[in-house]
Design a binder for these strands. Structure first.
Lengths: 218, 218
DNA sequence: AGGAAGCTGACAGCAGCCTGAAATCGGACC
DNA sequence: GGTCCGATTTCAGGCTGCTGTCAGCTTCCT
């Protein structure tokens, strides 16, 4: 896997580069946004690790440019602890995940692997459960051959449940997927969405484990 | 996982407690250091979330006491935005991580999970005992290849028994896992749950050590 | 045998969940 | 900006089955 690292701090940058390289991946390390732009327009990367505090421009701009150009490369952003607002903005601008500085290098590796796996290795399969067919990539659902329209939030809940198919997923987990890093929701939103999914996909699609969470049968 | 939350702010405390609980963990919420001390000397926690701005003494003292007593329980401290010095002092005093107020609840969850994972190192294995398979993380149980549904409380008891597999676990221990500190139960609830587990998982799964407690064979 | 400890079926109560409906949000379009 | 409309979030009332309790029984030990 080839990773583009955009980080202006020399010490941290070198540490990250060495750590990723030691995991057997190729790393291009850019310290300025313009260099990164050039690299991105020349090469194809499977993952971008982007520091949002760069000296020569806002890293967010680069992210937005990528998404505006329909470049789907997975991007993980890094910010300082107290920059919650920037983090949220980053996720809304199309980042796939984030890391808060200072972070563990091993934790970073785990995130990298997770994001890469999520976006490339598994190209979101078509799932069939009884009479239900779900095309996660194309966001198309069918029940008994009839097309059913799901909303954005409903897909999020569904994806969370299916990514742990057979396991019991807690409401907190689902909530975290729904409201990644923005304002907290203080109501039974998850219950409502489960209810909607059941109405659309069938009552037995999701089972409730009282006090534990929800589960989609294997 | 059982978490001790030490936070004097009523609103924030309640919000944190509910959020952790919604992820399926047990939470004891103390608002004063003395209560927290008592709880820590009585129960075993897998994680402590400690506010450093408490009215009746410095939270740092509690942290130092814990480390002086060689208590390795992971501690995450929370401080206000501008208390950089205190934060550093906290980390030097043995804190595992810190959160800057105000923080996102979902971010807190992520930190909790990260710290807990880092310090436990064994991410809830799949246990096999004879014909029984228990997936603690996914909360899925099988007996002779057939799926068995366990309730929330039953998992708690099971987890307690398995975390000391081969050893004899006292009823008091199990009771402490089941019920929050202070909320005592006056009945044979533990016996009832052992009975229910036996009915679902098989009679010989748990053996009774009269006058001592219960035991799961190695 | 007698007593202490443990087991388990039954059941009321209530925490947790469901869901229809109302309020609010947010994007599209003029 | 203003208006519309569907999506999202909140709320409240109703329902369900988990939970704690107890009583009567069994098992173990002296």
């Amino acid at each position: 896997m080839r990773v583009l690292l955009i980080e202006d701090d020399h010490v941290l940058g070198a540490a990250i580069r060495d750590h990723i390289a030691s995991n057997g991946h190729g790393v291009d390390w850019m310290q300025r946004l313009d260099d990164a732009r050039l690299a991105l327009s020349t090469m194809t990367y499977e993952l971008v690790l982007l520091d949002l505090n760069l000296p020569d421009g806002r890293g967010l701009d680069l992210l937005r440019e990528l998404r505006a150009a329909r470049n789907p490369v997975p991007v993980i952003i890094t910010t300082a602890q107290d920059q919650v607002a920037i983090r949220i903005e980053g996720l809304n601008s199309g980042a796939d995940d984030y890391l808060v500085k200072p972070f563990d290098l091993s934790e970073m590796s785990a995130r990298l692997a997770a994001v890469a796996r999520r976006s490339s290795a598994n190209p979101l399969p078509v799932v069939t459960i009884g009479p239900i067919t779900l095309d996660l990539a194309r966001k198309v659902a069918m029940v008994d051959g009839k097309s059913v329209v799901l909303t954005a939030r409903e897909w999020v809940v569904l994806q969370r449940l299916l990514s742990h198919r057979g396991a019991i997923v807690t409401k907190g987990d689902i909530e975290n997927s729904l409201y990644a890093f923005g304002a907290e929701v203080e109501s039974n939103a998850v219950e409502v969405y489960v209810s909607r999914l059941r109405k659309k996909l069938g009552r037995d699609f999701v089972s409730t484990a009282r006090g534990l969470g929800y589960q989609v049968a294997t």
